[in-house]
Design a binder for these strands. Structure first.
Lengths: 197, 197
DNA sequence: CATCAAAACGGATGCTGCCTCCGTACGCAT
DNA sequence: ATGCGTACGGAGGCAGCATCCGTTTTGATG
């Protein structure tokens, strides 16, 4: 049992070096040029051939998912903070902002993310993060609903889509003020109206 | 004055033929493969060389704008119907749906549209339609606000962005049910709460 | 109808990026 | 030190973009 770790040989040193260099360089390029950046350029700057890049990360999505790994962990870490909050409505709001920031880490990121969320191809490495995010959102939504702060008809998936939309618009270069107006609009949409008992 | 129409020569026949063929073929390809479709393929199927395509439409956006022309006119036509409606809230709602359909004419259309709406490059042929749409939206919003049906803080531009978002999500292949939920969410966001006098 | 010049055509061309394949070199175990 | 297996990386095939220029088409003119 526990077969995994180092069956047979020990992992080679250059493999780990190359992988690390690729991830670091890829992140820089994604940040500067968006998710559509040239993979050849990434390989060249990382000091490896194209073949090496594609062996480590067979598709653009695989590379993207690997680069996103760090940020995913940050998001999970933020969840701990958010869960500390007493107010479930406040928690939901902060969670939505956290997701939105995650989605807008790189320009153009929402597109492959949505594709992954929809397609349900189990081999797409972006599918897993998406599923996790959707169900996490749903939990925050339910909690806020139990407290009567969010309308009963709202689903986690709806707000996942909304956060993704805002991130997409952000990625198109819209001014922050317009984004804030949109966020407010959405918040007015999901919040429960004050029941005047 | 009225200098325009046919100064000097008469327009050549092949020019008009080619332009029409290109527009027709381009529309088919945009419909089937989205706005990112291969322009070479369009030219080939239209029976012209790449040079001819690029002479008629120097950029992808120019071709897109020309193809969109017909649909823009349909949208204007729908405005006449919508303006007939007595209820300004209903009018706004229908206008938003009409815009959304316009935005989702081709998969991937929202991206260049947003780019045009933001950039304000006067040479971008998509910029003009966007400006028109935003101000039209603003008029419907104002009318509905005067009737007390839409919250005072809402701007036409906000709902333009919202419609664009929904169209974008639609383009990613999300199911119609999820879209409807999102539309409802947005509507709840901009509608005035019932004032219980 | 014949001729001419302008205008338009279209394909060859150079470029960039994607992705694969395979001879070579490297690193680890012995 | 040696050998095996793994990983490397660049060459190469392909597709799409955008341009340039020799050739053809077209309408005007006499």
């Amino acid at each position: 049992m526990s077969a995994g770790e180092q069956r047979g040989r020990k992992p080679r040193a250059d493999v780990q070096r190359n992988r690390a260099a690729l991830l670091e360089t890829a992140q820089q390029h994604f940040l500067q040029h968006g998710v559509g950046t040239s993979l050849e350029a990434v390989a060249k700057e990382a000091g490896v051939g194209p073949g090496t890049l594609y062996r480590h990360f067979p598709t653009r999505e695989a590379l993207l998912a690997a680069v996103l790994q760090t940020r995913s962990e940050e998001l999970v870490a933020r969840q701990a903070d958010i869960d500390q909050l007493g107010d479930p409505a406040e928690a939901l709001e902060q969670w939505l902002r956290a997701m939105e920031e995650y989605f807008s880490a790189f320009s153009g990121l929402p597109d492959p993310l949505m594709a992954a969320a929809r397609a349900q191809e189990p081999d797409n490495p972006l599918t897993i993060p998406c599923d996790i995010l959707i169900s996490a959102t749903d939990q925050y939504v339910r909690a806020a609903q139990l407290a009567g702060r969010v309308r009963a008809s709202v689903r986690g998936h709806d707000l996942f889509l909304a956060a993704c939309s805002v991130a997409w618009i952000k990625g198109t270069g819209t001014e922050e003020e317009s984004l804030d107006r949109l966020r407010t609009l959405i918040a007015s949409g999901y919040r429960e109206r004050d029941t005047q008992a």
